[in-house]
Amino acid sequence: METMPDAYLHIRTARAALQQSGCSLRCLAAYEMGANGPDPLFSYQILSSHRDPDLYALAERLHSERAGAFLMALATLARGDIQRSFAAGFIMHNTLDSLAHPYVAFLCESEDGIYHIPNGHCFYESALDCVTYRQDTGDRHAVLPLSEACPLLSPAELGETTALLQRAIFAVFGEDIPFLAISDSYRWFHWVHRSFRSRYGFKKLIARLLDAALHKPGFALSHMQPCKMKPDVPDTWRDPYTGESHIGGMAAIVEQAEHKGSEQLRALCGYWKREVSREDLAQVLGNASYNTGLPC
């Protein structure tokens, strides 16, 4: 299983960016689901040892290859309120991932990183979602609701977003993914987020037993909500991909993503109103890898 800065933080950042932008999108459910980016594809047939089609591999490509071209395909192919709202949210996912992932890699992949443990990436992001939601609500015992991580789309909304993704994937990567496979990935995504909630700890026990049976520490447990954050997570860090030093942890990164996202939303809505050129939009959206923040 894999996730990128987890679902609630993505949706929260997308909401803040939209508010800062002053733009108006008519389908907020599609926008917020779009803020999960390619991540739902990771969930497709998650219980199967052989996925057909292999949407996990496709999701990895979307995160690391031709990111700018794919965002532009979404922007230019989107038709109507649902598809445009979804495209805008998807772009916000790239904005946060590309800024946050170097920091997450510092925490999880450095030998002395505080989350340098099996599935540390997912443990950190699950804890981040939990802590952020509790701070936002002021309830230190709150369990992140399913609706705040995986908005439920109507059949019409799911159909429109699936059709857009199908066209954009073919346009950029040349892969003709079946419509039903893409739409099913969202149902799997919803199932995964619903299943990995353990208010009273019973499911956490099952997750521990599953991890032990599979000999994969943290494979299931790392996705459970609620999840405690390790103490003393550092705010001073070095980007493992560029070597640059930074002061300011995830809170500073999220603030940067909200500001950048608001600028991108203004350019995107301007493009749809024919006030911003295709070339200018491409420049604003950029071509940053979700994984490293570097051009891809």
Rank of each mutant, 00 (worst) to 15 (best):
P5T: 09
Y8A: 06
H10L: 04
H10G: 00
R12I: 04
S21Y: 11
C23R: 07
E32S: 11
N36H: 09
N36G: 05
R51P: 00
P53H: 04
L55I: 00
Y56Q: 00
H63S: 00
E65D: 00
E65T: 00
A75W: 02
A78H: 10
G80N: 11
D81V: 10
I82E: 10
I82L: 14
S85Y: 03
F86V: 04
G89C: 02
I91C: 05
M92Y: 01
C108G: 07
D112S: 03
G113Q: 09
E125W: 11
D129G: 08
T132F: 13
T132R: 10
G138S: 14
G138W: 09
H141Y: 15
H141E: 15
L144E: 04
P145N: 10
L152M: 13
S154Y: 08
S154C: 09
G159F: 14
T161H: 10
T162D: 11
L164Q: 13
A168W: 06
A168P: 06
A168Q: 08
F173M: 03
G174F: 01
D176R: 05
I177K: 01
P178V: 09
F179L: 08
D184A: 11
S185N: 05
Y186L: 07
R187V: 03
F189C: 05
S195C: 12
S198A: 15
K204N: 15
K204E: 15
L210V: 12
D211G: 06
D211A: 04
A213T: 13
F219I: 13
F219V: 13
M224N: 08
P226L: 06
P226S: 12
C227N: 14
P231E: 03
V233I: 13
D235I: 14
P240T: 07
Y241N: 02
G243W: 03
S245W: 02
G248N: 13
G248L: 09
G249S: 14
E258P: 12
Q264E: 11
R278S: 05
E279D: 14
L281G: 09
S289T: 00
T292H: 00
P295Q: 03
